[in-house]
Design a protein around this nucleic acid. Sequence first.
DNA 1: CGTGTATTTGACTTTGTTCAACACGCGTGG
DNA 2: CCACGCGTGTTGAACAAAGTCAAATACACG
Lengths: 207, 207
Amino acid sequence: MGEADLARLAAIAQPMSISEGRAFIAEGDPAEHFFNITAGTAKLFKLLPDGRRQITGFASIGSFLGLAVSVTYAFGAEAVEPVHLCRFSRPRLRTLIDDLPAMEKRLLEVASNELVAAQEQMLLLGRKTARERVASFLLARRDPPAAALVSLPMARTDIADYLGLTIETISRTLTRLRNEGLIDLPSPTRVRLLDPAGLNTLATGLS
Amino acid sequence: MGEADLARLAAIAQPMSISEGRAFIAEGDPAEHFFNITAGTAKLFKLLPDGRRQITGFASIGSFLGLAVSVTYAFGAEAVEPVHLCRFSRPRLRTLIDDLPAMEKRLLEVASNELVAAQEQMLLLGRKTARERVASFLLARRDPPAAALVSLPMARTDIADYLGLTIETISRTLTRLRNEGLIDLPSPTRVRLLDPAGLNTLATGLS
DNA sequence: CGTGTATTTGACTTTGTTCAACACGCGTGG
DNA sequence: CCACGCGTGTTGAACAAAGTCAAATACACG
């Protein structure tokens, strides 16, 4: 994309700040906007009528939200940490994308990668044990991918709803990993991976 | 897409027939091809080293496979029923797509829809009970979407690996739904939905 | 008609949930 | 400054849903 294209994009972007805990997409609402997160972390989730919740992913800097074709959002979104984002009117973005093949291509790449991540998560939810899920989660949250320190900005409830478990199981599993010397828990929101290789063995079910 | 474009597409398409039970994509193999299914049903799956399997979806006529960006396939694929498909060399298709914005657009639509389906499946795997999963599965497999008769070309093992359950639980749950008058099971591969509304209540967790 | 596979059913086990109590950190106000 | 209250996290004990193991039945195919 050239500079002129970026300028056109910037012209229709509405920058916004979302404070912690605020929802900015409601599942089922008319899908009028498209979002690009520029800072912070948001959780994306689906709900059952009785309140059960599945967090389908955490979106942070660079993530695109709302590219579904449907007229309504298929998921809700809420800030876990204060979020900065750019909002785009879908019809306006649509006309812009239509003569920016590079943008379309980029979106297809993004969607493809998310699809791969979604399949990995299905494997986790359908076939992994609680220990394997937590180990996988900790490894996946490393940034950079070799870092020993992992920060968990989301609450236990969110981790539980992401991994298809309860907060009690998350808590017990983390404690057990600590007792086994695989991790350290300097604070509830910080984890130090003491044995990444061991965690990886666990995460891939080889233990 | 114009007729000339379709002709160019057809020129690089390699039609193939895959017999039942044959794998045609192996997870981890170099992603050299792109597939378009023209008949039959295939299962897509991911494996853990110890053999646990998660089926991430069933692909049938019209499905596109292998659009991930990665150099290797993130999933395996195997014919459930005899499959007819067109295979495309990825580099050749890439050059073709690059000057067919309509095709790129179509692929983005497909990917977006699959993403929505994947999120729905994560909700199912992470938060629904066995009964809710089976009810959701039966309703989703209706074709047309209001049909009372559902055919299950895949074995119980495949249903189990798709719903994150065991074959025994699938079997017991179907029997129980039959005993409760919600469905009829004329044969293991055929299900008649006697009370779609009741099943829907179940599937959405409202019971 | 027999053989092998897929499915169903039954008895028992296990993993993770539920319910409940307790600990900890933190901000507010006495 | 410290007691109090509240939200979040941890731990324990009882429970339940689904899994495992095993056996019986049904089914398709040679």
